[in-house]
Amino acid sequence: MNIFRLTGDLSHLAAIIILLLKIWKSRSCAGISGKSQILFAIVFTTRYLDLLSTFISLYNSCMKVIYIGCAYATVYMIYMKFRATYDGNHDSFRVEFLVVPVGGLAVLINHDFSFMEILWTFSIYLESVAILPQLFMISKTGEAETITTHYLFCLGLYRALYIFNWVWRFYFEGFFDLIAIVAGVVQTILYCDFFYLYVTKVLKGKKLSLPA
């Protein structure tokens, strides 16, 4: 555990809680991609199956349970509780174009050809692209609520902090996991355009809207 990893995890947790609170307080999931949230629920489910087989630490187990619980709570709010406010027409990204290639890649390129390990690899690859339906939705509607941009910023920050964590672990522990690193870098790159808009618009008090 190092400071980058801890702040990365906390940033991830903040993102998840910001999204839940936004939906709960406004009683609306307008502008939120239900498809991205389903993908994140799949990501956590397939990655954290080791909760049942391997104990790493109390911190590790607690965070996993919280992440999974929040992911399903978010999906429940979008598709059940506040379904009437879900903007399905704008959430038109074809997720099969992500899930199918990612599944194929996980079978082909992994650390170990075992059931659990292929699911872990699948979750790593899927997480790297799971935000695409959300970014697609924003590009389609041309705008995002400020609270949604805070959510996205925390989520992107978490990935960036994990990269610093891997640099740290490489130098001080000799540890590196190429699959996680490549997928993590890809994921962080996807946020770059958004980071630029966040810094130039949202932090200056403007709403995030894209030029037509």
């Binding site: 990893r5 995890d9 080791d50 590790n60 965070m63 650390h111 390990e117």
Partner: peptide, 10 residues
């Protein structure tokens, strides 16, 4: 050879 030891990150 790659010795696989599991994953400790979230």
């Amino acid at each position: 050879a790659m010795s696989f030891e599991g994953h400790d990150e979230l």
